[in-house]
């Protein structure tokens, strides 16, 4: 099964969730994703998601200073973004519940022979 398709929507929700915690920047988001197990995600995956979220109006971007001296892009969530995050959490929990229930019921009677 294509993990990338499965990950696409979930990653957007996770990134939105990280940004909802307060203004942050690309590398910090990447570090949090990595800390929680998304180790294969590089900046080349993250940045398109950030621009997509920005184009949808879920986050806004400003340029500020970084401790290293040059400019840095900081992202923060908008009201529409917060609304979308709430909707994502509801949908996500519902999907997880349904998927778990199906997997439990179907695999339960197969003595886990798939594994």
């Amino acid at each position: 099964m294509d993990n990338a398709q499965l990950l696409k929507g979930i990653l957007e929700g996770c990134i939105l969730s990280i940004i909802s915690g307060g203004e942050t920047y690309g590398y910090h988001i990447l570090s949090i994703l990595e800390k929680h197990g998304f180790t294969d995600i590089g900046e080349g995956t993250l940045y398109p998601v950030l621009t997509r979220l920005e184009n949808k109006g879920y986050i806004i971007c400003r340029i500020g200073k970084s401790p290293f001296g040059p400019r840095r892009k900081y992202y923060s969530i908008t009201d529409i973004g917060l609304k979308s995050l709430k909707e994502f959490i509801i949908s996500y929990e519902k999907i997880i519940k349904i998927s778990e229930s199906i997997i439990k019921e179907t695999l339960g009677g197969m003595n886990h022979e798939l594994f």
């Binding site: 920047y25 690309g26 590398y27 910090h28 990447l30 570090s31 590089g42 900046e43 080349g44 940045y47 340029i63 970084s66 290293f68 040059p70 400019r71 840095r72 892009k73």
Partner: peptide, 29 residues
């Protein structure tokens, strides 16, 4: 470029391997 430079400086400060940020193909990144 400021996004890329900031990522590189941050990753370098943590001693992270470059390919962890860019992936194996720099041009694709």
């Amino acid at each position: 470029l400021i996004q890329i430079l900031d990522d590189f400086l941050s990753a370098q400060a943590e001693g992270k391997e470059l390919s962890k940020v860019t992936g194996p193909d720099y041009r694709k990144y």
